[in-house]
Write a protein that binds this DNA or RNA. Structure first.
Lengths: 184, 184
DNA sequence: AATCTAATTTGATGAGTATCGAATTAGATT
DNA sequence: AATCTAATTCGATACTCATCAAATTAGATT
């Protein structure tokens, strides 16, 4: 689906093809005439017209010896309207892995056993790692600080920092003053 | 001027750049994040973003370590509206030689001395040659048939055919029944 | 000031494609 | 039917450009 849009832009990403569109906007022309006007060989113009026809922008009508091409202005307008519609923008993104960044960061910072080499200093990377670590806790279950530290120690010896950051970024909550922790 | 339009289409004639536009339509991203999402190296993403920035579609804002890129939706809409405006279509054509086809045909059919090798059989080529031949006559001056033939003989021995076609295509007029010829 | 990090730039490489000439095809004219 | 002619297809070539790795730059953190 996004392929269609790429093909459309590729078809128009050439100076000579744009000139052809401009010329056909004035009047229909045969391949031979276009070749003379653009100072190109007929085979080259044929190649360009095929690309424009592929996206439905031009069509040919046989007239005696000649193949006269004309611009489909309707298609031109309708295509250009929807180019950046919500559907097309969304379609271009369907096959990107939304978690790719987190995965890359986690892979960079993890050992084979799942523990962390270091705790990232950069905010975005720290967030990615914390989103990963917090999954070790069940949702809505209460944990004592001792239990939290025990779980976090699987990831890094500096359990205090991990615990503090998890709360700081809102990934875990703490009850009142010195109570239990939980993940929402 | 047409260069600008070509640059615009070229900038969007790439699947990964379209994905970048789609992603930035959702939220701003850093180069590093985009690289992870698209499974590309940061240097490649930088290259793509430079092309998108060149046409004013994205811009960067520095945020701590990161260069966060955002989509300029206003530019996106306004650009896509005017893409095939009358101005752009006309601009794409400014530097094409409108007489190139006639010139090519005339060159193909003329000898060095200006005379015609043959009279073209194809309509379009015949028209081009006739437009060339008729320039030997002054506008609004009356010529006898004998004088017409004398002038046409510089181009081809079959003056009768040339004379008939000139009148047939309306390039020369004839007075009443057997009177003089003239070019309007 | 020294060090770290993300981004950019540069150079090299491979894939894609615009262009042409030659061969072929499709169709009209004679 | 035979012959012309424009268009298309095919193969080759040159150029453009997407991509990466390495080097450099710009900027923030310590």
């Amino acid at each position: 689906m996004s392929d269609e849009v790429v093909t459309f832009f590729k078809a128009l990403a050439d100076a000579n093809r744009l000139k052809i569109v401009g010329l056909l906007a004035q009047q229909p022309y045969s391949v031979e005439e276009l070749a003379a006007l653009l100072d190109l060989k007929p085979s080259t113009v044929s190649h360009h017209l095929a690309k424009l026809a592929q996206i439905g922008l031009v069509s040919a009508r046989t007239e005696s010896y000649y193949n006269v091409y004309q611009l489909d202005e309707k298609a031109l307008q309708s295509k250009s309207q929807n180019l950046f519609s919500q559907e097309n923008l969304a379609a271009s993104v369907v096959d990107v892995n939304a978690n790719a960044y987190d995965q890359k960061v986690i892979a960079d910072y993890s050992r084979k056993d799942g523990s962390l080499k270091t705790i990232p200093a950069q905010r975005k990377k720290l967030e990615a790692v914390l989103r990963y670590v917090v999954q070790a806790f069940e949702i809505n279950k209460k944990y004592s600080e001792k239990k939290v530290n025990e779980i976090l120690s699987r990831y890094h010896e500096d359990t205090a920092s991990l615990r503090r950051e998890l709360v700081g970024y809102g990934l875990m909550k703490r009850e009142g003053g010195g109570g239990d922790y939980w993940r929402e």
